[in-house]
Every structure is written in C-alpha cells, then in structure tokens.
Design a protein around this nucleic acid. Structure first.
Lengths: 231, 231
DNA sequence: CCGTACCTTAACGAAATCTTTACACCGGCG
DNA sequence: CGCCGGTGTAAAGATTTCGTTAAGGTACGG
C-alpha cells in the first residue's frame, strides 16, 4: 500500500462526493473521484486504488456491475454506500464480494473507522500474516503448512474441512454467518446451501472435539452462523 | 465538534427562547436562534450546529418538516421540545429521527444533561469509536463479532434478541419508538405488534440486568418506546 | 478396471426459537 | 370501588433450524 493510501470515490451525488473528498483529504488519504459506473471502472484501472467507496445508485449502470468487474481481477477492498433500508441491495452487494456496507445517511466517523479497518486488514493480508498459526488450548492450526493438531496429535482434514476451519480461524471468537462461510468455502453461487455447513461442521467436530455432542470450540449460533471460541 | 459546541434553538416563544439562550450561554455553548421553521432551516444550513433544540409548535410550518429536512442530509442530534400531553407529536417526531424529547415545562438541569449526553455520543461516533463495539459499565456488545458480555460473562442471545439490542445500541442514550424497533427487527409489516417488544424486552432484561424487575439499562418510556442508557 | 477418498444430496428426529394466548400488575379516572 | 390502557411475565404450541446418518456420485491413482 502506498502511503498515504489512495481511495476512489464512485458517487454521482455532488454534495456527498464533495463531503467525502473533504473528509478523506483531511485524514491524509489521496482521493480520486468518478461520477458514473463506467468512469469508476476507468479510474480504478488507471489508479489501482487501495480502497473503493461505491454508491449503488449510479446513473448509467448499477454499482453491482462495478463490484463484479473489480472482483474479476482484484481483491481491492470495496465499501458500498446505499440508501437506508435496502436490505436486498446489501445482501447482493456482499454476495458479489463487497467488503462492507454503510447506509446513507451515515456518520462520517463510522465510515472512516471502517475504512481504517479494511486498509489494515488488506495490509495484513499483503504481509502474509494470514498464513501464520492459530493456537487455542487444545487446537493448533498451521495455516501456511495446512497442518492441524489436536491435543498434540496431527489430524487429517479434507480440503473443504480445512477451508471451513480456516474461515472460522480468521474470525476467531466472532460469529461468522452461514452466508460468509458458504461464500468463503464454496463460492457465491452456493451461498444458500446451509446443509453443507451442517454436514461439514459435524465432520469437523468429530475430528476436533472431545465430545462432538457437546462442542467446546465449534459453537453453533442458531439462525446466524458458527463461531470458533479460543480456549 | 467545535469547542465550544454550537447549538441552534428553534422556538417562537420569546421568554422560553431567552431563558434557553441564557442557560446555554452560561454553560459556554455558542447559541444560534430561529423563531420559525423556515428560519430554522436557513440557520441550520448556515451554521451547521452540533445540536438542535426544536419546538414543535411553530407558527409557519410545523417542526416535523424541519426534522425531515435535516435528516435528509445529516445526523445532527435533535432534541424536541413539546407541550405536555401531545403524546402523539412526540412519537411522530421521534419516528422522523429526532433523538430525544423534553416536555414543557421542563427542568433546565434535565435538559442540559440530555444535551451533554447527545453531544458526547456524537463526538464518539465522529471519532469512530462506535460501529465496532458498544461499552457500558456492565455490558459490552461486539457488533461485528455478534458477541455480548455482561460483567465479563459471555451471554447467548437469539437472533431476534440480538437484533433488538443492536437497534437500541445504535441509538444508545436516545429514545427509540415502538414503531422504529418493530420495523428494525421484525420489518414494516409488524410495526403494530407491540406485544413482541414486551416479550423480548423481558427476555433481554432477564439476560442483561442484575434485577430484571428494576432495570438499569433497558428503560421503558411509557407510551413511546425504550431507551438504552449507558451505565 | 477397481479401490479409495471425497463431495453432494436427501431424510428424519432433536433442539432451539418464535409466535400467540392468558393473566397479573400498576396508576389514573369516573 | 371497578374499569381501562399500557405494561410485564409465563408457558403452550407452531415453526424453523440443526445434527446425524447414509446413500449415491465423481475424480484419481494404481
């Protein structure tokens, strides 16, 4: 990441765009702007920004196209801005690979916090810290080496089992939604196949838990998702 | 927020306006005044105050219009002043996005306390402390991780319980109307099912409060809604 | 061609959650 | 005093979501 980070704003509403530019410049980000989806794509190609702020309600095409196109070639963090209450938009945008969602009207402080968080995460991934090792009392996961040990014993996991565990480890201690897990492990087109999760969580528990009927690490959050607790 | 904070008073009654100006100036706030709704909007645009005190009984238009217009573009805290007994006005103003209400005649000390609370909260949001986790003395809510801790202990919440708590946390300190909570958690088609709220507020209190019969965080505002107070 | 490992899919009992109903409580008011 | 609206509590279904198992199906190496 360059320092300062470069941020691309794709937003047709002039006052909001101006406001964003001012707020971001004040935080020492370098700002690029686009008013339409196609101009946004052009700017993205030209500038290769570190993060994209994307309004969904654009004049020429919808913002979803922009997400799709960017995600075809890059993992640049994308924050979607959209009118409040468009729950469907939110789900669709996140399914297409957007990283976060902020409803308008928004509090600028919150938006800045989310930008910082995503830039931090992107930096971590670039530095390969993601390939480190996760340790809990009884479970040890070597993400780079693809090795899992339980109470000292090495345990063999199938590819999908490992990807699933990896997705949980990345957010250790936090709830990961069904949708997130499915998109991460099986891809966006399987984001509704919650049955996969039931089967594979069962298999992971059989391999990792002492008593798979009373799991201590792989916790179910009914109606929401799963969570890996440390310790 | 500038220091001192700037407060806009929109109030047609001269004695009250004068009294407010004196009280607020004594607290070192910078005060702007307007006597009508349209003048209020003009002042708001010109001054971009940190907080608005709004009387609902204005001569030219009603105060509701002012709330609507401000909320189209900003989250500036709004405290509504309303004559006693106008319960419906109060609820409508809050539904439109007002943050708090004070009935006339009011105790100046209480009004000042609510102003301080809203300014504090607005400052925190600007600094981006919100968005991720909410902290009160005994309760900690990790919104991203969907984890709730009470006095250190992790507490499990069902999906609806969590969404309800989340809706309260998002507006921590301010009154949230029955309608807003119902729309947020159950959707627009259930905006009249106030019984849901009684059942689930009861469950939240049982899980979060020391003594659910004497709640300290989840406060009932009879006839209006509920309020989460930060310990 | 066969065996092995793995993935997908369906079926069904169990568990958790949500909805609905019933009733007690409280304060104000005729 | 009884009535009433708004509120809080408890519990019985109804409904949704989970976990488990097992039966194909596919890919790959020997």
């Amino acid at each position: 990441m360059r320092n300062p980070a470069e941020i691309l704003i794709v937003e047709d509403d002039a006052p909001i765009r101006k406001f964003l530019r001012a707020s971001l410049s004040a935080e020492d980000y370098r700002v690029h702007e686009a008013m339409t989806a196609s101009e946004g794509m052009a700017q993205w190609l030209a500038r290769q920004p570190d993060l994209v702020l994307l309004d969904l309600g654009l004049p020429d095409q919808d913002g979803f196209t922009v997400i799709r196109q960017i995600r075809q070639t890059a993992l640049t963090p994308i924050i979607v801005l959209s009118a409040r209450g468009r729950e469907k938009d939110k789900v669709e945008a996140l399914d297409l690979g957007a990283d976060d969602f902020v409803a308008k009207p928004f509090a600028i402080g919150e938006l800045l916090a989310r930008i910082r968080a995503l830039l931090r995460r992107a930096a971590r991934i670039r530095e390969g810290v993601d390939g480190a090792t996760f340790r809990a009392t009884e479970i040890e996961v070597d993400l780079a080496g693809r090795v899992v040990r339980v109470r000292g014993e090495e345990v063999h996991l199938t590819p999908i089992e490992f990807r699933l565990l990896q997705a949980l480890v990345r957010h250790a201690g936090k709830v990961v939604t069904h949708r997130q897990l499915l998109v991460d492990v099986w891809g966006p087109q399987h984001s509704e196949q919650a049955q996969y999760l039931r089967v594979y969580m069962g298999q992971l528990r059989r391999k990792l838990e002492r008593d798979s009927a009373r799991p201590r690490f792989l916790i179910t959050e009914p109606g929401v998702g799963y969570r890996l607790v440390e310790g």
